[in-house]
């Protein structure tokens, strides 16, 4: 439950997603990271049936928080609930309806290196794969601004030129927010970007 950075990893040219994932996994293993189970982050989006209020609601299920579900409205409000959120939303079908093609997930291998947790996942929407998601978590620290430099150093070692130059916008906007919220928001942003990219294709 530490500071988390989530981003898309651009696959080098001439490689498919599977080869890209293997390359990234090899890099992590070369650093000294050890395999430590699997992870999954699922996102389901809903849209409001009210024509005047066309807001989108994203619900996130993260295997790191098995007993919680996160709900995020587009206007920025955020909710942490228990596992009954899905059942509750299905009862509210008249207000919130699942978006078509709204289910997207990132699934893959989880690595541990020192106190870092590295998650390399394949993002897929139904049967089609969309890209590779990389999540880096530094567990002992709870303050993103404090350990950001330390995390950038790790990211440089892991993904070289694809490491971010500055603090992600989501974290920079609310550095004191709940860490689970920051993770979920970054995933939602990543999934939205991937969805848009696949629509433009």
């Amino acid at each position: 439950m530490g500071v988390t950075y989530v981003s898309q990893w651009n696959i080098p040219e001439g490689k498919n997603i599977q080869q890209g994932v293997e390359e990234l996994q090899n890099k992590a293993e070369k650093l000294g990271a050890k395999k430590c189970g699997l992870f999954v982050v699922e996102c389901e989006s809903f849209h409001s049936t009210n024509a005047q209020n066309l807001k989108t609601l994203h619900t996130i299920h993260n295997s790191e928080y098995p007993a919680s579900r996160f709900a995020c409205f587009e206007d920025g409000s955020f909710l942490v609930t228990d596992v009954m959120l899905g059942t509750f939303l299905s009862k509210l079908r008249s207000v919130w309806q699942p978006k078509k093609g709204g289910k997207i997930e990132s699934k893959g291998q989880r690595y541990e290196f020192g106190d870092f947790i590295i998650k390399i996942g394949i993002v897929s929407m139904g049967p089609s794969t969309k890209g590779i998601a990389l999540e880096l978590e530094y567990a002992p620290c709870r303050f993103p601004l404090d350990c950001w430099e330390l995390m950038t150093e790790m990211l440089h070692e892991l993904i070289d030129d694809q490491a971010p130059a500055s603090l992600p916008q989501v974290i920079a906007q609310k550095p004191d927010a709940n860490l689970a919220e920051l993770t979920a928001l970054q995933y939602i942003r990543l999934f939205n970007n991937l969805r848009k990219a696949s629509m433009n294709r």
């Binding site: 650093l31 000294g32 290196f113 020192g114 106190d115 330390l150 150093e153 790790m154």
Partner: peptide, 9 residues
């Protein structure tokens, strides 16, 4: 002059 060595500060 580095932050990390073996993944530790």
């Amino acid at each position: 002059r580095k932050h990390l060595r073996d993944g530790l500060p």
